[in-house]
Amino acid sequence: MERRAALKGLATAIGGLVVLPSWASNWNHTTLQPTDLLSAEETPLLASVVDTIIPKTDTPGAKELGVDRFIQLMIKDCYDSKAQETLKKGLATVEEDSKETFGKSFTACNAAQRIHILEGMGLSDDATSKGFFTMVKGLTIQGYMSSEYVMTNITKYEMIPARWNGCVPVNQ
């Protein structure tokens, strides 16, 4: 009886959801619009950078999941002008280093070459290069791991755990 009553109460509560407003603008990789932060040349370059950091394998890479657009949005809206400058300067350095080292544009390099360029920036003494690397790698990981694809298929996000056990063996 109590269970039935509880289920009834639950149904009432869930029934309420039907009338939720739909104005809230959800985003995923198909709806996320590019921002005006980067130029037409810089935009594909950033996409290539994030795809170098997390490439496509048997699962999608960061570019496929729209992480480059997420990064632009975050840096445009939530970061200060210094970070925005770091992003643009860093992208310029990526391209310069690539041409200097491999004689071609970053986007034309193979995966190993692109990793080489980014690793170099991470180890650089130049504050902007290092800052760019740390910021973009961090945001790539954040955007990728919090994407719908990864949270649904890989890390199995649970919105409604409906349980708590404070002490269970690790392997269970």
Partner: peptide, 24 residues
């Protein structure tokens, strides 16, 4: 109750700045 909880069933990836508030 419920009607005016616009975010209550949103998934983490549906928050465009992942819960962080814009600087402005």
């Amino acid at each position: 109750h419920n009607v005016d909880y616009p975010t209550t069933m949103k998934m983490p990836w549906e928050f465009e700045h992942r819960e962080r508030m814009p600087l402005e």
